[in-house]
Simulated assay, not measured.
Amino acid sequence: MRHHFSAALCAAALGAASMMPGARAAELVLTLGDGTRPVADAVASLHADAREAPGATAVMDQRDSTFVPGVLPVQVGTAVSFPNSDQVQHQVYSFSTPKPFELPLYAGTPRAPILFDQPGVVVVGCNIHDWMIGYIVVLDTPHFGKSGAGGEVRVKAPPGRYTLRVWHPRLDAPVERPLELGEGRATLAMTLALGPPPPDRRSSDRLRALQDRLRSLRRED
């Protein structure tokens, strides 16, 4: 299964940072858009020293032949389970360099989760349902978050100097910039140059299946 995502080099329109003095921790409130609308499912992370999270767990479910969540950020060292909540079987796999793996055709929950021990983006698919695509973003930092429908993501971290990194499936490469956080809250706005959304493969597959069924019924008549 091959996936193509094209995008122009990302341009960041940076808003001024505002600080609230007196707080002991720092929080980055990042608002992401593409120039016309908010951007959901973007992963923002703050990087300083690489860290692992041994013993951490996470879940990527399968519901209505869709990975839920479709984008799952985790820290290096996290074990991810892939329960199948559907009435049909799935065969989950990835060819991505950080973690190639395969879960043979199954229903319910596999016995053992998959350990993600290398940073990078892991594209997950299903050998049975080609439209199923999920992304596990494995990060070497505990400071990360994912934007919601409004394009906002909040990341907490100790005050200090970081590299801010923003990833999205429709970017050619993550956006990076240096960032220094003081105590309190910092607000920042960024505009991402996203590529076009992928075609709705689920609809086309269902249409072909319906057409095949209609043709078979006509032959039977």
Rank of each mutant, 00 (worst) to 15 (best):
I136R: 00
A17H: 10
V92Q: 00
A56I: 10
R213L: 12
H3E: 09
P104Q: 05
T187N: 02
L30E: 06
T141W: 06
E220T: 15
L171W: 03
G55R: 04
G195E: 01
R51E: 14
A26S: 14
T31L: 08
A11K: 09
G151A: 02
H143G: 10
T36K: 14
V175D: 00
V124T: 14
I136Q: 05
P196R: 11
V123T: 12
A8H: 08
S216I: 13
D86M: 10
G134E: 03
S81Y: 01
R218Y: 02
L115Y: 00
S81C: 04
H129F: 15
G195W: 02
R208N: 07
V121H: 05
D130V: 13
D34C: 13
V124E: 03
Q75C: 10
A107I: 11
Y135E: 09
P113K: 08
D221L: 13
V92G: 00
V92K: 01
L179G: 04
L164C: 08
M1V: 08
R161G: 09
R219F: 01
V137F: 11
T109V: 14
S147K: 11
S6M: 05
R2M: 08
Q91W: 15
D172W: 04
A8V: 03
R219H: 07
R206K: 05
M1R: 08
P54R: 11
S6N: 03
M190D: 06
Y162C: 01
F144W: 15
D117H: 06
A8C: 10
D49S: 07
G70Q: 12
S45I: 13
S216T: 15
D130P: 06
F144V: 06
L72T: 11
F5G: 01
L139I: 03
L207R: 11
E183T: 02
F144G: 06
G184E: 01
D61M: 15
G182F: 07
R2V: 05
E176R: 08
P21I: 07
I133N: 00
D86Y: 04
A23T: 00
T109L: 02
R2Q: 04
P98F: 14
P21D: 05
R111N: 10
R208W: 09
S6K: 05
L188V: 12
V43M: 13
S147V: 10
H3T: 13
Q118I: 07
G195K: 02
T163M: 14
D64L: 13
L139R: 03
A157T: 01
G184F: 07
T36I: 02
H168Q: 07
V39N: 12
P158I: 14
H90V: 15
A79K: 08
F95C: 03
T36L: 13
Q211P: 00
L9A: 14
C10Q: 03
P54K: 12
P142I: 08
L72R: 04
K156P: 06
G55I: 14
L103G: 08
H168V: 02
R51N: 04
V80D: 05
R208D: 01
S204R: 08
M60E: 06
V175E: 02
L207P: 01
G160S: 03
D64C: 12
